[in-house]
């Protein structure tokens, strides 16, 4: 492997999806900037015309913060045909790692969520108990309830449309997944009170209507693999 200034700090590779620009992860950022500038100046005529090319930037083991990302993007997009699609780096901050771990976690909660109480978690939540009318359960991921949902459940709080609300007994006031809402039918319209279904179900966003639908919980694996 070549070292020092003789090595190419910026490599451009063509792939099926478009161009990948591989940046060296050992040199200083300033060196990288200089090299990138040179390269762009040299190859300007290649990129200045023709159809737009989507570019993936691979920073290897270099940590790229937002500021660096912007500098690199600006340098690359000086050539009109280049559009930076994505940044890829093997390195993330501890904070980001912690957030990702939370998103992937399943939090188990054992309580009855009563009127006026709100239980909110990052990631998925498993409730061993009921949600009573006036109470709410929220998660950025999925909501699983081993009990009766009579209150409000919100899944995909930050916009994940692929999340579900599952309950052993589904008798909700309200369900929302991302920003799609479902109100239970009015008590007077419903002929009698009681659960909406006589077996465990989950609520999900049906496409393309973008409406909340229900399906039997034992078919949840089909939704997950979709």
């Amino acid at each position: 492997m070549k070292t020092g200034s003789s090595k190419n700090l910026v490599t451009i590779k063509g792939t099926k999806e478009g161009l990948t620009i591989i940046l060296d992860d050992q040199c200083s950022f300033d060196d990288l900037k200089v090299e990138l500038k040179d390269k762009m100046a040299r190859d300007k005529q290649v990129f200045s015309s023709g159809p737009e090319v989507e570019v993936l930037v691979d920073a290897g083991y270099r940590y790229v913060n937002e500021e660096h990302e912007k500098v690199i993007t600006d340098l690359l997009e000086e050539a009109q045909a280049i559009k930076v699609k994505e940044f890829h780096s093997e390195v993330i901050t501890k904070e980001e790692a912690k957030r990702q771990r939370e998103e992937d976690a399943l939090t188990a909660v054992t309580q009855i969520i009563r009127s006026g109480q709100v239980v909110s978690v990052r990631g998925d939540i498993l409730l061993l108990g009921d949600v009573n009318p006036g109470g709410a359960i929220e998660a950025t991921g999925n909501v699983y309830i081993l009990g009766t949902l009579k209150g409000t459940a919100r899944a995909g709080l930050e916009g994940n449309l692929q999340t579900v609300v599952s309950a052993s007994v589904m008798e909700p006031n309200q369900i929302s997944i991302s920003d799609v809402l479902f109100y239970a039918p009015d008590r007077y319209e419903k002929k009698q009170s009681g659960p909406l279904f006589d077996e465990p179900v989950y609520a999900y966003i049906a496409t393309p209507e973008k409406e909340i639908s229900f399906e039997k919980t034992r078919l949840l694996n089909q939704f997950k693999t979709e």
């Binding site: 009855i112 009563r114 009127s115 006026g116 109480q117 009573n132 009318p133 006036g134 109470g135």
Partner: peptide
């Protein structure tokens, strides 16, 4: 009544 039970539920939550 639904409303009395709702409030009782709130109180039980607070008492806990």
């Amino acid at each position: 009544d639904t409303s009395a039970v709702r409030d009782a539920d709130r109180i039980v939550g607070l008492l806990e």
